[in-house]
Every structure is written in C-alpha cells, then in structure tokens.
Nucleic acid binder design. Structure first.
Lengths: 216, 216
DNA sequence: GAATTAATTGAACGTTCGTTTTATTAATGC
DNA sequence: GCATTAATAAAACGAACGTTCAATTAATTC
C-alpha cells in the first residue's frame, strides 16, 4: 500500500503534534518511540519523517511554539495601566489560565529541556527568560513605588513562577476546585506574598475558607 | 579478567548509587544506559546486576531512600512547640536545607516518577503524601487559631511546597545568594503568603532589598 | 485523461539497549 | 594452603530503537 484515501498533510501534521504532546507528557520524550507515536496517529513510523526530520526536531517545535504562545498570550493580555498591582494581577491570571489550558505542553516544555541540543536549549531558555523578565519588571516597579514589599526581586519572581506553574501538577478539571476558584486563591496568595499594600481593588476575594478544604 | 584487586561490594554499591543519582539527574532515567553508569563507576555493566536486579530497582531504591530521608529529617527537626508559626518556620527551613543539600536526588525523585511501576509509584506517592500532610496540619492549626489567613489549606500547601522545592531549579551554591539568605527570604515570603499575623519572632528579617537584586 | 505531485507503506539498516550466562580471579575462612 | 565465597569481566542474547529507501497509490494540475 502507499498513499491512503483521504490523506491530508496538514491534518496529519496536526495529529502528530497533538499525539506527540500527549505521549511525551505521559511517557517522557526518551521513553516515547516513534513507532508508538505513529500508532497513535494511525500511520506508519516512516510517515512521521515527512513532517519532522528527526525526533528532536519534533520536540523542539513543540517547545518553541509553546513558549512563543505564552509570550504572545501575555502580550495580548498585558494591561495598559502602569499600576503594578493591576499588572501583577493580569500576569498571574494569564499565567494560570494559559498553563491550565495547556497542561501537557507545559509538562513537555518544563521536563524535556535536557533532550534538546545546546543551541536549541539556548533558544528555548531565551524565550523563557524574556517571559520571566516581564514579571521582574512588574515586581521592581511595585517595590520602587512602595506598593510591594519585596526582599529580592529575582528570587521572588522565581518563587512566584514556580508556585503558579505548579498548578498543573495537581489541578484536574472537574475536581474539587474550578479554574476560577484556583485563580482567585492564587491571586490572593500572590498579593500577600509580595506584600501588596493596596488590596487588589477590582479583584473579588475568594469564598472558600480553610475548614472547607483540608484534604487535596 | 574477573574479580579485581581491592574490589569491595559495599564500596561498589555506594559508588553505583552516587553515580546513578548524578547521571539520572543530568540525562534522565531513560536516557542513561547501564553501560554509561558502569563506565562512570569504573566497572562493566554486568557487575551492576550484582547490586540491583533491574534498572528500575535501582531507580526505586534511590527514590525511596530520598523520600524516607526527607521524612526522617523532618522528624528530627520537628519542634516540640505547638505554635503554628514556629512549626511552619521549622518546616520551611528543613525543606529548603534538605533539598538544597540533595539537589540531584530531588530532581530524580520529582522527575522520574513515571518510570516506576504502578505499585512502586504508589509507594513513593504515599511517602510524599505523608510529608505534605504535615504541612497541611500546620496550616490548618494556624488558620483555626486565627494566626494564619488561608483561603484553602490544601491548595496553599501545594503552592508552598512547589515554591520551596523550586529552589533547586535555579539555586547554585557559591553564586549570588547564600543558603542562609535564600532560606531567610523564602521564610518571609512564606509567612506573608499565609498571612501570618505575628511576624515570626525569633526569625531575623532579610537584609537585601529589591534594588540590589533585579537580575537573577 | 495523462503527467505530476503529495502522502504513505513496508522492509530494511546499523546501533544500542537491558539483561543473562559463563568463566575467572581476589579475598576469606578454616 | 586449601576450599569456599565474593566480585568482577567478557561475550552473547533478542528486542527495540531512530532513521532511510524504494515502491506504490491518491490527489491535483493542465
């Protein structure tokens, strides 16, 4: 056999990407074989090489597009306001929404960096650094304006990002908490962590109290 | 050739463990071959099978001992006091000290869970849950005593643990910050995050201010 | 409807993998 | 010093890996 009826390059490539994200997230990049991936797509392994010259090219493409998507999402969300508290709130909300919506891709981007060649690793890390820089700028502005109380901007930025990204580890849609509840709670934790003086105006406070939620 | 002069089972096994932790942390469990590991130890691959029946047994042993060590460390550190703020401070200090001292092993325990068989995964997760439960108890007690202001105990516990464990991603000994500085800053971030009313008595406040530390 | 291009299969290549087996030598016990 | 046990080497196993290549068929172009 050869070309199959109804076959379409664009659709196949999209199917490969989607299957790859989910398989790599579950098994890990090294543990996923090209044959497994092909089987999930419903195609022979050789067909994959029409879209991605090597396995690593596939991984890199997934990661690059994830990181570019994150930066683009922030660019669209970024508020016009220069109020640090409003900007921080927007950053947190965008970060959590983006990562919850792309749990598998985030897993891949965070866990499989070591499988990239040095040059490609550098490219991904540059994108990541650019994104983190945005948060540091917000924190610095807020600290200088006396709105935030921050000991160390760089360290606080890393702590916040790790705290927020950690959501994907335990969050499962449809379980105890909704995305809105999680976001609200993380927002208030963030504001307290940075010692925000003005308690974020337009942002509703969370409803849940401690006794409702001992077990996670 | 066969048995080499000076060879000693105990020493070889210890060397295998140490080499495995560092190799798996750098390359990942799947990417590390038994031949690479053997070469690092200075032995043939077949010799590894005298100490660990399979590659996965080796991984599981490393993880189990890491988690047991973490629980044991907390048991030794756990303060007699029942003051939630003091207990939380002790938890944070122990967590950061333990993980910074075992960066590679932590990496392995956090990243390679998917390479375990279901039964072994369950055993490791049980240890992890037991450890997290300790933090939730502290947070709950503090919230009920009105010392902490917490929206959701489970969610706050996860956020704190992810924030603290994240230290191992960027912390490098001998760089900008000392372990003591990092610990102090994380402690004050933690106390603010949980809305601690009484600002932790015996704990010194950090010296650094925002403008000192924009770049990380 | 013939020629061209796009999409895929099936088989094969050389490598490397985890692991097993057998033989061999060093250390230890008596 | 002889027998036994501990620790390793060397070679081999089949299986699986990423990747390539030639052949084949579907869709598209003119």
């Amino acid at each position: 056999m050869a070309r199959t009826t109804g076959s379409d390059g664009e659709k196949t490539e999209a199917a490969v990407r989607e299957a790859a994200v989910s398989l790599i997230a579950r098994l890990g990049y090294e543990a996923m074989s090209m044959r497994q991936l092909a089987a999930k797509v419903g195609v022979q392994a050789a067909a994959l090489y029409r879209y991605f010259p090597t396995k690593e090219d596939l991984l890199f493409t997934l990661m690059r597009e994830h990181m570019e998507g994150l930066l683009k999402a922030w660019d669209r969300t970024r508020p016009a306001s220069d109020d640090p508290a409003a900007r921080l709130a927007a950053y947190v909300e965008n970060h959590i929404a983006f990562h919850i919506a792309r749990r598998h891709a985030t897993h891949v981007s965070n866990m499989e960096l070591r499988s990239l060649s040095p040059e490609r690793l550098t490219r991904i890390l540059k994108l990541r650094t650019a994104y983190e820089k945005e948060l540091r700028a917000i924190l610095r502005d807020g600290a200088e304006a006396g709105i935030f109380e921050i000991d160390d901007v760089g360290l606080t930025a890393m702590a916040l990002i790790q705290m927020m990204t950690g959501v994907i580890v335990w969050f499962r849609p449809g379980e105890r908490l909704s995305i809105a509840e999680v976001t609200t709670t993380y927002l208030s934790m963030t504001m307290r962590l940075v010692g925000a003086k003005i308690d974020t105006f337009s942002v509703a406070r969370p409803v849940r109290r401690a006794r409702d939620a001992v077990a996670l």
